[in-house]
Design a protein around this nucleic acid. Structure first.
Length: 206
DNA sequence: CAACCGATCACCT
DNA sequence: GGTGATCGGTTGC
């Protein structure tokens, strides 16, 4: 299913987070677990603009927690939220600038049984859109589905050929994109920086 | 060392 | 579409 996919290039992430966010729709997040390959197509993201964006973790300045954001582009920034969930971001912009993209929802593509197990969903109906939607239609859910945690994955280069967490392009074309305000934030909440594939049933909400 | 609080989720109506 | 549960990391004393 994802055998023809290619790793995204460094230059892809070395751009304004708003441009990267839009271009990331339709790309793949791939997790390799031994002989298993789990993959999901990105259907929803949010752009975080760096130190000047009050909703961004980077607004706190350079700290131990958010250190990855100031590093080179294309790296995983994974943080823990609400004492329960992890969220996956990919760093943008050159080293020294702290933009990132929050991956908010995936359409499950391969490794669906493994994802269901990781989400502790038993007797999943593979023909049920309702069940498939539950796998990765939110930032916390997709991390659980792909086994993404801060101790394991924070700081990983997602563009490394041997990596176990990668951002890839399989040539899928996205035509209809909708832009809305970001979800769950209080500061700078009005800016339209959430990007979704308009007709995807796998987004967190419409 | 204690208090605070959040880039969410699941379940309810 | 509203709301309560939840708890480790971060921050400030």
């Amino acid at each position: 299913m994802t055998r023809d996919a290619k790793l995204l290039r460094r230059a892809f992430f070395n751009r304004d987070p708003r441009i990267v966010a839009r271009d990331l729709l339709g790309k793949l997040i791939v997790r390799r677990e031994g002989r298993n390959q789990l993959a999901g197509r990105i259907v929803e993201v949010e752009a975080y603009l760096g130190a000047g964006d009050l909703a961004a973790h980077a607004a706190a300045g350079h700290t131990a927690r958010n250190s990855v954001l100031w590093g080179p582009p294309g790296h995983a920034y994974v943080y823990f939220i609400y004492g329960v969930h992890y969220c996956l971001n990919i760093s943008c912009l050159p080293a020294g600038a702290a933009g990132c993209i929050l991956i908010r929802a995936l359409e499950p593509i391969s490794g669906i049984a493994e994802m269901a197990k990781a989400r502790e969903m038993s007797d999943i109906d593979y023909a049920s859109m309702r069940d498939l939607r539950k796998l990765a239609s939110g930032p916390g859910k997709l991390c659980e589905a792909l086994g993404i945690t801060r101790p394991r994955d924070n700081g990983k280069d997602m563009l490394s050929p041997k990596g176990d967490l990668q951002a890839m392009n399989d040539g899928f074309h996205v035509d209809d994109v909708a832009v809305t305000p970001r979800i769950g934030i209080t500061k700078s909440a009005e800016m339209p920086l959430r990007y979704i594939i308009s007709n995807s049933p796998f987004v967190s909400r419409r």
